[in-house]
Amino acid sequence: MIKAGIVGGTGYTGVELLRLLAQHPEVELAAITSRKEAGMPVAEMFPSLRGRVSLAFTTPEEAPLKSCDVVFFATPNGIAMQQTRELLEAGVKVIDLAADFRIKDVAEWSKWYGMEHACPELVAEAVYGLPEINRAAIKQARLIANPGCYPTAVQLGFLPLVEAGVIDTSGLVADCKSGVSGAGRKAETHILYAEATDSFKAYAVAGHRHLPEIRQGLARMAGHDVGLTFVPHLTPMIRGIHATLYGKLKKDVDLQALYEKRYAGEYFVDVMPPKSHPETRSVRAINTCRIAVHRPQGGDTVVVLSVIDNLVKGAAGQAVQNMNLLFDLPEQMGLTQIAVSP
């Protein structure tokens, strides 16, 4: 059994990790930390886990993290980098669901996240945990930078086009919408029920923290820098991301065949039939990205629709997928749930 610890178990990503790991046949939950809730039984805070998780929250100092096989950080940005070096030295594998190790340019990371990096030497070692691109490297890693939710939906949507070199990468557009759980489990005015319900708005148009992460990933696929306009929106739903992606084709290509070939054998990417319009509810609570590709009026514009659950394929589910790869388990183990509908 894999002994797993979670640092930061009280947020939406943390409880999603608990839900998935509690039903994983090869995982034993060894520690769940929370400074504020230390001593409280997990099932008292999250009754959905009654009968499945018997642990209580502990402080990070008291938790037996160094005796774990893997530790997940479901914490705010800037926390994992403070503790990762010590865990790696103890032989523990680390999967960070925050952004501490995603961006290879440390100066660029500091600009977007407003702090100095505590262990820049580990950034170069960290493997970006998007399995559909980095599967071989993930299997050999000891430190995984789990991708962000928007970057997962956008990169998987653009990947076949950029890899094949059939799209003009100087003017890509990612028009994305997210449910309110993407803002985290906290009290902020803009995500209050009365503020977010029956409304729809764009935000961070001047620049979102996920922009450099997406650009970095697309540049790796293309072999050169790319031009990207990324505009996120807040929608009045709890879970889900819908990314509508636009680009100009450089050559005529059978788009459906391109996507089906690229994602053949990828358990967690579903290329839908021609003319499909995937909905966020079709991926609710599962680790799947559903994609549809369109060429309106047969012109040179390609439109890709990519949907994921921001808490699963966009966070906790992808982290479990990475854990499976790290420990040479079937990639889909513990992640074969059917989407919740309605």
Rank of each mutant, 00 (worst) to 15 (best):
I95H: 06
L49P: 00
P296T: 13
E61P: 01
A136W: 02
P342C: 15
P41R: 03
V205R: 14
E213A: 11
G11C: 07
Q82R: 12
A107Q: 12
K248E: 15
P160R: 00
T152Q: 12
Y267G: 12
A339R: 05
L211Q: 12
G265H: 06
A74T: 02
S282T: 10
G227Q: 09
N324E: 10
V71A: 10
A141M: 12
R185L: 07
I291E: 10
Q83T: 05
I6K: 05
K250T: 13
A141G: 13
P278E: 08
I308M: 05
I6G: 03
Q82C: 12
K275R: 15
C119K: 04
G240Q: 06
A257R: 14
P330I: 03
I241R: 08
I103G: 02
W112I: 01
G184S: 10
D198P: 00
D100G: 09
H210A: 15
K201R: 15
E116P: 01
V226I: 08
F327W: 03
L18N: 03
A74Y: 02
A124R: 14
A90M: 08
L258E: 02
K251P: 05
D300R: 11
A183W: 09
P212S: 10
A183M: 11
A107F: 09
I214S: 11
H224G: 05
C176N: 08
V180C: 11
V303P: 09
E89Q: 13
Q82A: 11
K201E: 10
A38D: 06
G14R: 04
D96L: 00
P160H: 05
R52I: 02
L258T: 01
W112P: 02
G298E: 04
A137L: 10
Q337L: 12
G317S: 06
A292I: 06
F57T: 01
R85K: 15
V307N: 09
P330H: 08
H24E: 04
R281E: 14
H224M: 06
E121Q: 11
L172P: 02
Y267H: 15
Q155I: 12
A136H: 06
K111I: 09
L218V: 02
G9H: 03
H24C: 06
N324W: 11
R220F: 05
G184I: 04
V15H: 10
T58R: 11
E188D: 09
I238H: 14
E62D: 13
F57K: 02
I291S: 08
T169M: 13
K139D: 00
A137S: 13
A316Y: 04
L49T: 01
S34V: 00
G171Q: 15
A219D: 10
P296C: 14
G9Y: 01
S199W: 03
A196H: 10
E195C: 12
A202G: 15
R220A: 15
L249P: 01
A136Y: 05
W112F: 07
R220E: 14
R295Y: 00
V123C: 05
N134W: 01
T152I: 07
L87W: 00
E28N: 11
L326A: 14
R284Y: 04
I79W: 03
